[in-house]
Amino acid sequence: MTARDVQKIIGARVLTGEEFLDREITSACASDMMSDVLAFSKDHSVLITGLCNPQVIRTAEMLDIVCVIFVRRKHPDETILTMAKERELIVMETGHRMFSTCGMLYSAGLGGGAV
């Protein structure tokens, strides 16, 4: 699945990284706790979160996450978007809740991987 597929499935708005939407995504991780993301995320994944602070981008960079999706209409500020652009990271936002976003992506075939 590509980031473009993810965007279409959840009806997300791309905030940065539109030129990278053809990147492959192999799994998803959803959490507002970056310690859990560090423990359970895999390369080439999408991070689904409602936590709107720069630590999300730093965590994504450490784990080679392809895309960050902010749920519940959370909108990252310019500091976060600038950090994402510098790291060539895709950032999206959606009005869906985390549970719904995960469900839509899971139903479309995107898994979370084994723990």
Score class of each variant (00 low, 15 high):
residue 63 L to M: 14
residue 13 R to F: 08
residue 66 V to Y: 01
residue 31 S to A: 14
residue 71 V to H: 08
residue 91 V to S: 09
residue 49 T to S: 04
residue 102 C to S: 10
residue 85 K to S: 15
residue 19 E to D: 15
residue 79 T to W: 05
residue 22 D to R: 10
residue 10 I to C: 09
residue 43 D to G: 00
residue 18 E to P: 02
residue 108 A to C: 06
residue 49 T to H: 05
residue 85 K to F: 03
residue 22 D to E: 14
residue 46 V to A: 05
residue 80 I to D: 01
residue 57 I to D: 07
residue 107 S to L: 12
residue 8 K to H: 14
residue 89 L to C: 12
residue 30 A to E: 06
residue 54 P to V: 12
residue 102 C to K: 03
residue 32 D to I: 02
residue 2 T to R: 07
residue 23 R to S: 14
residue 77 D to L: 05
residue 59 T to R: 05
residue 67 C to I: 02
residue 15 L to D: 11
residue 39 A to W: 10
residue 40 F to A: 00
residue 42 K to T: 11
residue 22 D to V: 04
residue 56 V to A: 10
residue 69 I to N: 00
residue 21 L to N: 01
residue 113 G to D: 05
residue 101 T to K: 01
residue 37 V to P: 05
residue 103 G to S: 06
residue 43 D to H: 08
residue 63 L to W: 04
residue 3 A to G: 13
residue 97 R to W: 05
residue 13 R to W: 10
residue 5 D to Y: 10
residue 57 I to T: 09
residue 50 G to Y: 11
residue 95 G to T: 13
residue 93 E to R: 08
residue 25 I to E: 04
residue 115 V to I: 13
residue 55 Q to F: 07
residue 77 D to K: 09
residue 102 C to R: 00
residue 52 C to F: 08
residue 4 R to A: 12
residue 41 S to P: 05
residue 54 P to S: 08
residue 7 Q to R: 13
residue 16 T to A: 15
residue 41 S to R: 10
residue 45 S to N: 01
residue 104 M to I: 08
residue 42 K to N: 10
residue 114 A to G: 11
residue 100 S to L: 11
